[in-house]
């Protein structure tokens, strides 16, 4: 990835003259996903931008790490924006036929996404008060996007199929964890009859939310978007793994259930109950364990030999502990 290729992608079909890339910096990611921050200076004006690209396709589509094609992810942002969800503005969609693609370039919004800072810095004390309510409102807006209006690549699987896929993964990874099997049995035995079906963000959690002193600024990282029961997004946000040490604050480590549900109800006119949210917290905890195991598998197969992949495998036991705590008294 070079600044020259990036500049070329930005000037294609653009008569505004050749611009200059400044402070190009890779932010994060594994081998199959790159996120870059940079400034684009053109005609004396500088715009802070983000490039997301997936140069290699390392993960098959039935993997829990399977991500939307970035071109579909780019198509979701305007759909969410139309419902009043704060999201970055997409500037360029880079198809597979381009040097950098598939990927897209979007605005870089000012704000903080690091959970540690959002949960601890005095600067965000006011934001923390608001955030659970704002997350409820924002999720309700995302959920106004009807399942039949999203790009075809957005997964739309009934819950029984998703649970069967989780069993297939446990089998594929050698049935190594009795706790995972116990949890999957519970999920099968307690599966709710969802009365609603809509677009879900799929990864709506502390870490993917851009925050400033007043609270939520933008919802990032839509690559796990799919369709399903709206309670899933709320339960996921409350998963212990995404509370970053603040287990006493169930909503992302910053808020309580009542605020989240009040915000949701204010926009949607209804809200899931705590039992539904608990179900999806269990689902989320098992999902996190499967993500950890999938990362080890990627590492062992040679598909992605980065240290991060190997190391995340050891976080599997976090999911086991969360599952045992969540299921205590319910088995």
């Amino acid at each position: 990835m070079t600044a020259a290729a990036l500049a070329a992608a930005l000037t294609d079909n653009d008569d505004s003259g050749k611009g200059v890339i400044h402070t190009l910096k890779r932010l994060s990611g594994g081998a199959n996903m790159e996120t870059w921050a940079f400034d684009w200076e053109v005609d004396g004006e500088t715009r802070p931008l983000i490039l997301r690209r997936s140069p290699i396709d390392a993960v098959d589509s039935d993997s829990p790490l399977a991500q939307l094609p970035l071109t579909s992810e780019a198509a979701l942002l305007p759909l969410a924006a139309a419902q009043g969800v704060p999201v970055p503005t997409v500037l360029r969609v880079l198809g597979e036929d381009t040097d950098l693609g598939p990927g897209y370039i979007m605005s870089r919004e000012p704000g903080e996404a690091l959970p540690g800072r959002i949960l601890a810095d005095e600067r965000y004390a006011g934001a923390r008060e608001q955030l659970a309510y704002q997350c409820g409102e924002t999720l309700a807006r995302i959920h106004r996007v009807a399942a039949d209006t999203v790009p075809a690549a957005v997964p739309n699987q009934p819950l029984p199929e998703r649970l069967a896929a989780q069993q297939a993964l446990l089998d594929r990874y050698g049935n190594a964890s009795p706790v995972h099997q116990l949890a999957l049995n519970w999920l099968l035995d307690n599966a709710p009859e969802a009365s609603r079906h809509c677009l879900l963000h799929g990864d709506f959690r502390n870490g993917n939310l851009l925050v400033d002193e007043n609270g939520l600024v933008a919802v990032l990282d839509w690559e796990l978007a799919h369709c399903g029961d709206p309670a899933e997004d709320l339960g996921y946000l409350c998963g212990n793994v995404w509370r970053f040490g603040r287990s006493d604050k169930p909503v992302g480590g910053f808020g309580d259930y009542a605020s989240l549900l009040a915000g949701y109800r204010a926009v949607a006119g209804w809200a899931p109950d705590l039992d539904e949210i608990h179900y999806w917290e269990v689902y989320c905890a098992l999902g996190w364990g499967l993500v950890c195991l999938t990362m080890v598998d990627l590492y062992r197969s040679g598909a992605d030999t980065t240290l991060e992949r190997a190391a995340v495998g050891r976080r599997n036991s976090e999911s086991e502990m969360d599952l045992l705590l969540l299921l205590d008294g319910r088995l």
Binding site: P178, V179, L182, N240, R243, G245, R246, S247, R314, R315, N316, S317, E318, E320, M321, D322, L324, L325
Partner: peptide, 21 residues
């Protein structure tokens, strides 16, 4: 299962909040 997970987590990530819980 609880004892096993507690011992495994004590190795993998004793700073995880779930370990204290």
């Amino acid at each position: 299962l609880r004892a096993r997970s507690l011992h495994q987590l004590a190795i993998d990530n004793p700073r995880y909040s779930g370990f204290q819980q």
